[in-house]
Design a protein around this nucleic acid. Structure first.
Lengths: 206, 206, 206, 206
DNA sequence: GATGAATGAGCCTTCATTCAT
DNA sequence: GATGAATGAAGGCTCATTCAT
């Protein structure tokens, strides 16, 4: 029966619509201001409606982050499929993440927020759901590093660990961007970022 | 003149007293629960009094962050004074930061929090004041790198830039620790952290 | 004509079905949690459907109360039919009410609730409908008292009035049970309850 | 030093002021509508202010009930001091409670409400605090019954138990008043009430 | 007739900030 | 200079009720 299907499709769309509103609020007014009622307002829905799609505020943020991680993951997969050498791949992964942090700020911000927020904020089960997505990304990167090791381009390191280290490095570098106007004044941030990747790769070589 | 001086000294002490209380609240109950009235309570002062020493909550946190950075800076200076080789220094800086994140959680958390939270948070002037402190630390690290370059241990890189990269890396790695129980389950975080430093240094060598 | 009848019968059954669900919710989660949507859920009906059988939440509760009173009334009738002496009957009525308050908590609670809550609660017409049911019960009790008067067991009192007084007494005693763990701690409530009935009867004797 | 005293006095008065507002809201709009913000509105205070005097809504109601019980208790004490015979005292206690339920409706309603409300509503400690007040009243009544027993007017019963029974009876009778316009239509409620007391006393006599 | 998504008023509570004393 | 009572906007969330399908 097409009815049920249509209903489901509509429901899914509404969920996305709400998420989009949440993303916009986040993007335009920052995390602090991202209240349910604002989201509802932007979505042109009643507050209660939001709650019939998401159990609570937390869930919205989790969904948003998953969405973001998924998007990012897809971009990285594309690179994995098109780029040739492992070194090239790693560089492009990094570039993609920088790009993502710029062009998908709302996603980036929320990912970042989750990383920085006190553990208390999210219950363990939620945290696991979130982190699992992150894991996919790490696996991808680790795969590329393994490739490099097998090809003799990289030394014989633990690929998983170095994938994690790379992510940590990028994540840390991006945070420093906050200081573009103060400490990093006059510096070319993108160059710095790239240099950090190159340095990481250089360390990786035998 | 003595009177004025004493007044000033008393005022300074009171400010520190308030800061100490804020730190305690932060440490014991986390950022969410760090309300002015709690701080006032712990400081055994009236709420109003707090406001006559700090314009608002924000200012307290900024001051706290400055204090934290100062403390960290001193620890690094000590290392600079006692450790011998540049490589050793860098490794010890890193170890000190890890240590700081563990034993001075209140400070670390707040530094981390403001680094990660959307910039809406602070007005520009405040940001500058904070970042200047961070700059001191970077200078110190950069000095050590320069040392290494001059001694031929490191390749001929831009010391300032690499100091920044190191900080970014450490900062990023520390954030990943949040995932000790999920993604990093079973991993030895400290080992990972140290490995990231070694990789950084390895990249630095000619 | 059969069709109309069947329709009506179906409708009646549906009403009862809804009432049964409401009763269950009440029994399992208490008055506070007895929301329409829960009732609908348990009845496996849509919320809207509930509203096509009952104008609003109030009406459901009223119906529930009527049902409860009816059930109680039947039990009392049974006693009236089987017990022999008026005194025995009165005692058994009382025992039956105590029993009802224990084994038909859903019903008892709601009767009690509406008796105790401020009258603002119900519009006049509703109230009348409820009270009429209560009247049946009173008539029954009054009948027994009359019996006793005619038999010379009881003094020559106004039976209606004393029926009311008995009900009031029982109702009041049952409410005190709420304090079993505080004021009545250590007391044997059932004994107290029975004593109140005996005292009532003793007063009734010539 | 007068300052501290005055402060305290003012605080006490404010508490009373808030309680008075709560009482009024209760009186005028019933329990259902007694929200904090309404109370605040009537008290011409900010919502927050209410919360600085009472931890939460619950506490306000508890305070209100205690106040009510205290008031009632005083009235009964007066009777105890002035009335002569135990029978007279009991009758006057009953009359006083009826009077109280009429002239101090707001208090009576809330006492009644607490008796009828599901146990869940109030945490055990609160309940105990409430019930303790009720206990004072019971003690008083029990004292009078003892008096009667010692004077040979009453049979040798357990005074505490009969005090409880009397209270239960009165409480139950008062609840029936709700039906003045339906079941009791045409009845003289006050007469009925008095008759219930007389019947109780009659039962008490040897 | 049945449905259940949508609504939004309303609830309780918190807390940064002000200002009269 | 110190105080802390008062404020009230804002937040997250619930639920009786409506109405388009």
């Amino acid at each position: 029966m097409g009815l049920k299907e249509r209903r489901q499709r509509e429901k899914d769309q509404r969920r996305k619509h709400i998420l989009a509103a949440a993303r916009s609020v986040l993007y335009e007014s920052g995390l602090q201001a991202a209240s349910i009622s604002r989201i509802a307002g932007l979505a042109e829905l009643g507050v209660g409606t939001i709650y019939s799609y998401y159990r609570n505020k937390e869930e919205i943020f989790v969904a948003l982050q998953q969405e973001g991680l998924e998007l990012l993951c897809e971009k990285l997969k594309e690179i994995d499929d098109t780029a040739v050498t492992p070194v090239e791949k790693l560089k492009q992964y990094a570039a993609a993440y920088l790009d993502f942090s710029r062009n998908n700020r709302e996603y980036y911000d929320i990912i970042n927020y989750f990383l920085a927020s006190p553990e208390v904020m999210f219950a363990q089960p939620l945290k696991e759901r979130i982190d699992r997505r992150g894991n996919n990304i790490l696996q991808l990167v680790a795969g590329t590093i393994k490739e490099g090791i097998e090809g003799g381009v990289f030394g014989n390191v633990d690929a998983d660990r170095y994938a994690t280290i790379l992510w940590g490095t990028l994540q840390g570098m991006l945070q420093l961007r906050k200081m573009e106007n103060t400490i990093l004044k006059g510096e070319d941030f993108q160059g710095l970022y790239e240099e950090s990747v190159e340095n990481f790769i250089k360390g990786l070589c035998p």
